Structure formats: structure tokens, C-alpha cells
Amino acid sequence: MDITGNTIFIPGATSGIGLALALALRERGNTVIVGGRRTELLERIAAEHPGVETVRVDTTDPDSVQTAAKDVISRFPAVNVLVTMAGVMRVEDWHRPETFLESAENIVTTNVLGPIRLIAAFVEHFQTLPDATIMTVTSGLAFTPLKITPSYNASKAAMHMLSETLRLQLADTSVKVTELVPPAVQTDLLPGHAENEQAMPLDEYVTEVMGLIETQPDAREIQVERVKFLRYGEARGDYDQVVAIINETDPHGR
């Protein structure tokens, strides 16, 4: 993906990494459309950041995804980048179903079915363009599990493999598939996580991501240095040690 000159739809960008990335991309000369469920947040973003467009979308609702996609494509026919940012993370105890089942279902619906629905809504349009990008959002926890977030880990692992497979299937089209792989970042993904000193500061993360997009426009995965500890534990042969370290020292890791 080129760093500038795109029209980018980012559902799930009303806060955290999504909003910070949206603003950084806007500053680099892209048209950016932020999507989210809460109208009041979208209105605030539009007021505080002139030039950023907004669309209401609930990725857990198939009808909402279809309506939002039609709206975006109608208003911004040049839209050529989709960033499937929307996601949730929950602490779960899998010893008894009443402590995890509802949470697990919600996470799978948001983190897996949501991106699938979004991709389904845009993939045909993207194939009519000379250059388009689907950017999925996974996590270092797709590769090394955090004990307290089993459904989140699994959802991100599923999205990693989906990204790998879509890249193969869409190789005969103009559509690129890029995977954004964050480490633990200081956001409100979990309560109190924005103050987690072991997590990467949000501004540092987005700055490094923007640099990688600029210097590696054809990258399959956008990996900041800090995520490689989780990403490559198995390849390095120290997977068991990595698992032990993050589960001893990072109770709210991403």
C-alpha cells in the first residue's frame, strides 16, 4: 500500500490505534473515512478533525455492514483501502461455560465475522480498481498466547491465517492483502491498559507503522520491532520461554 493518495475506510477507528492511524494517514494526504457504532463519537471526530469523514457502522450487524459499505462506495467511489480495525478483547475464565461463553461468542462475532463481512462487502469493488488493499488487524497474541484472553488470541490467529489465504486467492487481482500485527499498545482495549508501562506508547507505535508503510509498501505484514518477540518465538526456538515471560509479566498484553 502506498503511504499517500488513497481513499481509506477504517471501521473501528473511533479510538485507540484506529483513530491514531486514521489521523496519521489523513496527514499524509489520504482521504480517510472513520467508521464506528457510536454517533456521538463520530460527530466529535468530525468536529475536532476537519476533513476526516465518518460513517456509522456496527460490524456485528450484517445489515449495518452492507448499508455502510454501500454508503462509502457511493460517496467515495475511489475508496481503495479497507482497514478492518474493529475488535474487542476480554479477560476470560474457561473453567465453567457461564464465565466465558457469551464473551467468546461476542469476540468471534466482532473480531472474525466482522472483518469477513467487511471484506465481502468491498472485495468486488476493489477488483474493479487498478490498485487496492485489504489491511487486516491481528496481534502478536495470534502467535504467542496470553493465558487470560483465549478467545481474543484465537480470533487473531484465525485472522492471520485468513489473511495468508486471501493473499493467495487474490494474487490474480489488483487487491493486496496486508496484515497489521500490533504488540501490546497503550490503548483502552482492556481496562487500565492505556497506563500499562510494559505496553508500547500509542504515538510511538503509529509513527513506526507509518514508517514501515512508507518504506515497505509491498509488505505482507506490518511488524514493529516490539512485536517480533511474540511473532517469531517458535521460529527462533524459544516459544516456551516467550509464553512463560508474557504470562508472568504482562497481565494485560495485546
Rank of each mutant, 00 (worst) to 15 (best):
M1N: 11
M1G: 12
I3Q: 05
I3A: 11
I10M: 00
G12D: 00
A13R: 03
A20K: 06
A22Y: 02
L23V: 10
L23G: 03
E27Y: 07
G29H: 06
N30A: 12
T31A: 07
V32C: 06
I33F: 01
I33T: 01
G35W: 08
G36E: 03
R37C: 12
R38C: 11
R38A: 05
T39L: 14
T39S: 13
E40R: 13
L41N: 10
L42S: 04
A46M: 10
E48V: 06
H49V: 07
P50Y: 07
T54S: 13
D58A: 09
D58M: 09
T60M: 10
D63Q: 15
Q66L: 14
Q66F: 06
T67G: 08
A68W: 05
D71Y: 11
R75W: 08
A78L: 13
N80T: 12
V81L: 03
L82D: 01
L82F: 11
L82P: 05
T84V: 11
R90D: 14
R90F: 09
E92R: 11
E92H: 04
P97R: 07
F100G: 05
E102P: 01
A104F: 05
N106V: 07
I107Q: 02
V108R: 01
N111H: 09
G114S: 11
G114M: 06
P115F: 04
L118V: 09
L118S: 03
L118H: 04
I119F: 05
A120R: 15
A120V: 11
A120F: 04
E124S: 14
E124Y: 06
H125R: 08
F126K: 05
Q127K: 15
A132E: 04
M135V: 15
V137Y: 00
S139K: 08
S139R: 02
A142W: 02
T144K: 01
P150D: 08
Y152G: 00
S155H: 00
K156A: 01
A158Y: 08
A158F: 10
M159H: 08
L162N: 04
L162S: 12
L162Q: 00
S163P: 07
T165E: 12
Q169R: 15
L170C: 11
A171N: 05
A171K: 11
D172Q: 14
T173C: 10
V175N: 02
T178N: 06
L180G: 04
V185Y: 07
T187M: 08
D188I: 02
G192R: 13
G192H: 09
E195R: 10
A199P: 08
P201M: 12
L202S: 03
L202N: 04
D203H: 13
Y205G: 01
T207A: 15
T207W: 07
G211S: 13
G211K: 08
I213F: 01
P217R: 06
I222R: 03
F229E: 05
L230W: 04
Y232F: 15
A235P: 09
D238K: 05
Y239D: 05
Q241M: 14
V242Q: 00
I246F: 06
T249E: 13
P251I: 00
H252T: 14
H252S: 14
G253Q: 09
